[in-house]
Structures are given as structure tokens and as C-alpha cells.
Design a protein around this nucleic acid. Structure first.
Lengths: 185, 185
DNA sequence: GCTAACATGTAATCCGTTACATGATTAT
DNA sequence: ATAATCATGTAACGGATTACATGTTAGC
């Protein structure tokens, strides 16, 4: 049960949205707010080679727009692997230490075949983020330094950030419900 | 000008607060919200060995509370290196891709000899975080998908998070001013 | 004709993770 | 006695970063 590197999941998710070349993927990392990933060839091409080796992605030189290019798309196994990843539960551990993975998963979650997955994810995230904010608040109360230390203030940043995440999750859930209400009738 | 690994800065900052053993440092990572670092011996001891090799940390078996233990403390060069790191400016790049490093720096910033450093840091962070939130908002306007996609909603999480950071920075600055007002008279 | 953009890779190095390995001391 | 805690390390492996290396095509 080793965790797949985030970069590979990001590549797989992007290719499931739209097949493209390695260069196209790199451009996305370079020009959009997905820029927490490096667009360097030395990270992207080896990761794609691993996905091909594992049979999750297939390349075609014929379908590429230019000679030399390789159009990449997920295989059936690749799409199954993506669904498996998207179906993972939202745990306290994820919230405390892997928020970026959670956000990445969520960004691809509208590709999940189960339409209810988005609402479930947001409900779980709202709950876990609020609960973790409370945990941090409890930690902060233990410190109680008379002149506020920057350590204490940094902890309060964490509290504020998790509260903002919980608030966002509740609002996103409402927005999602409204814009997908027609399906429910 | 290679960037020092975050873990090494964290270790150096903690040792500057209070000399302790490698085990003590690991316990901090295991039991406090600084848990974004691994407490595994395979990460901590090699990092400490690098700091010793570079002359930033010195170990004493005599000063240790128990036989076998090694009490670690920063050298003069180590403290200078810590000050240098704490003095780095808050850039847009940092805000966009290295928030965890910024927060770590801030958590140690009350060790900085220049008392004004904390206020300067918070002012810069408030400004850069708000500006970056605006950048993201501009990105979001370009998407304008009729039914909100989860990708779009994920971007809105980013906006909410950076706004929360900016708000926290302004409030922390006010709090810091008040609790240190006596120094200014 | 030249420059920017398109396109794919490899090599060296460093760091983090996991698992392994060992031993002393304190509390029950 | 024996378990938990204190304490320090090494080895194997994998992945990320940076730099290097190369070639094509489209637009000016």
C-alpha cells in the first residue's frame, strides 16, 4: 500500500481530462496555479515513464500533432487507478499533513462516476478541518505565553487556515448542490 | 545560493531556542503541530550530521543528561546562519509556493536581534498574500465555467486561504504592536 | 534567416522514507 | 523482570532538482 507520488496522480488526472504531450503537461505546471509541481523535464518525463511502465498511460506517436511528439492518454487500468485514488476517504491525517493532496484530488473529483462523491468529500473535509482547528486551539491554550510569541502566532495562523478551509468546504457544498440540483429530481 | 533544506533550518531554530538531543528534537516533531516534519531517525540524524559537518551545530557528550546522549547546540556560525535565514525578504514566490517555509521562519522570528523584523515580516506577508489572492481571482475569472467545476472550486479554496493568511497577518501585526508597545517609549 | 516555442530525454546529486540494528535507563 | 522511554545510528531505495544535451517547426 505505498502511496503513489502526487506528481503521478496529477499527471494521470490531467491526461484523463484531455490527452496531451509531456510538453503540454509541463506548460500547465508552468502557467497555472497548479504550479506547486515543477515543470522541469527532469521531474515530468521520468514520472511519465513510470506511469507507462506500470501500464497506466499509453503513448502514441501517430496521434501526436507534430513529429517527435507523443500524445499521452490513460489506459483502462489508468482510469481505474484514478477512480481508486479519487475514492479514498478524507482522514484527519490527510487534513493535518496532506492538504495539497486533498485539494488536488478534489480538483479532479468531477471526473468521478459517482455524482455524490463531490458532496461526500466536501462534507467530510468540512468536518475534519473544523475538528483539526479545534485540536490546534487546544494546543494553543496550553502555551499561554504572556507576551505573545511568534511561535504562538504561527499556530494561530494554522487555526485560521483550517477554519477558512472548513468555511470554504461548506460554501462549496452549497454551491455544488444548487448547480446540480436538476439531477436530483 | 542553494536553498538549505527546511528540516535543517527547523533543527537549527529549535536548538537556538534550547539545546537538546536529537531524540528531543524528534519528540517535538512527533508531538507538536510542527509535525509536518518526519520524526524518523533516518531523516533527523543525517540532517544533524550535515549541520555538524558545516560547522553550524556542535555536540557535547559531557553536557548530555545521560550517557550515550549528545547535547546539541548551535555554534556562532550556526546562529549567524539562522539570522541570515530569518532576514530573508518575503517574496511573491515564497507566498505562492513556500508558505510552509514562511510560517516556519515566522515561528522563529522572535529570536531575531532586530525587534522590528517581526512587524516588517507581517506587513510584507499581508501585502503579498493579498496580492496573490487577487492574481488567483483573475485566473478564476478566466475559467467561468457555467456549471462550477471542482477545478474552479479548488482555485477558490486557494483564494480563501490566501485571504485568511492576509487577515491573520494584519491581526497578528496589531497584536504584536500592542504587546510590545512598552519598548517603543 | 533567425528566434521563440514545441518537444523529449539523461546524468549527477541530494534528500527523505522505511526498515533495520543496537543499547541504556526508568517506571511498574 | 520487563516494558516503555531515552538515545543514536546505517542501508536500501526512490524520487525531485538542476543542468546538460538535442532536434523540429512556426512566425517574423
Amino acid at each position: 500500500m505505498k502511496r503513489r507520488p502526487l506528481l503521478e496522480s496529477a499527471l494521470l488526472g490531467l491526461l484523463a481530462q484531455r490527452p496531451m504531450t509531456g510538453y503540454g503537461l509541463r506548460r500547465i505546471f508552468a502557467t497555472t496555479p497548479m504550479g506547486l509541481f515543477s515543470d522541469s523535464p527532469g521531474s515530468v518525463y521520468p514520472a511519465l515513464a513510470r506511469l507507462e511502465r506500470d501500464g497506466l498511460v499509453r503513448a502514441s506517436r501517430q496521434k501526436a500533432a507534430r513529429p517527435g511528439g507523443r500524445l499521452l492518454e490513460p489506459t483502462r487500468r489508468g482510469r481505474a487507478e484514478l477512480r481508486r485514488w479519487l475514492s479514498l476517504p478524507v482522514t484527519r491525517e490527510d487534513v493535518a499533513r496532506r492538504m495539497d493532496e486533498l485539494l488536488l484530488r478534489f480538483a479532479f473529483l468531477d471526473q468521478h462516476p459517482d455524482a455524490a462523491a463531490v458532496e461526500r468529500f466536501l462534507a467530510a473535509l468540512a468536518e475534519e478541518a473544523a475538528a483539526y482547528a479545534k485540536e490546534l486551539r487546544a494546543q494553543a491554550r496550553k502555551l499561554e505565553a504572556a507576551p505573545a510569541s511568534t511561535g504562538r502566532l504561527a499556530l494561530e495562523h494554522g487555526i485560521a487556515a483550517y477554519r477558512a478551509t472548513a468555511r470554504w468546504a461548506r460554501r462549496a457544498r452549497d454551491a455544488w448542490r444548487k448547480s446540480h440540483a436538476s439531477d436530483a429530481i
